[in-house]
Every structure is written in structure tokens, then in C-alpha cells.
Amino acid sequence: MLLRLDKRDTRPLHEQVAGAVRRAIAEGECRPGDRLPSARDLSQALGVNVNTVLRGLRSLRDDGLLEFRRGRGVTVAEGAEQRSDLLERVHALVTEAARLGYSRADLVEMIRGMP
């Protein structure tokens, strides 16, 4: 699998790591059931602290994209591809909204107000 990190990205590093893995899942770089490289390997390759990587991976687990299994490491969850694609777009929307001065609450209001 190929992972991309943007060096000019100003988001916190753990979010960038999560974003890189999310994009890899959305692009089919790793399929449901595939095992992810270990957090230590990811941290060495990306040049990021291992706790930062773990924080990013945990947030993806909370999103339902990854599964942490004892003895099997971190694997990609079933149906993660579509969910990852959607989440990727939601993240892009939140970032764009923040740039234009809208908070997440404003976005939620906008979505609620949609017919």
C-alpha cells in the first residue's frame, strides 16, 4: 500500500496520519481484512512519533474503519471502503467550512435545514 502525507498540511499530525490511512482505504490500497503495517513501522516510515500514529489509528477505529485485534494487529474493517470515501468527503467539507468561517455546529444546522 502507498501512503501520502502532505508536508505543507497544517492540521495536527495525528489527523494527517488518520487522513493518509483513510485515503488509502478509500482508494482501495488496502482491502477489508488486510493487516495494516504496525504502528512502529508506520511511525518510522512516516517520520512521526509512534503515539501520534496510535492516536490517528484509534480515531479511525472509532470511525469504524479499523479493527484492533489482539494477536492480529490492526486490520481494515468490513465495508470500510465506502465509509472511508464518505468520511473523506465530510472531512474535506469541515475543512473548507472552517476556512470560510463556519463552525461544525453551523454545518450541522445547514444539513438539518436541508429539505
Partner: peptide, 10 residues
């Protein structure tokens, strides 16, 4: 430009 790429395979 400005991207860091890493590749894993097992």
C-alpha cells in the same frame, strides 16, 4: 511537490 510517500508490502 511537498508530499511524503511511503510504500508497504508484505
Amino acid at each position: 511537490e511537498g508530499q511524503r510517500l511511503v510504500w508497504f508490502s508484505r
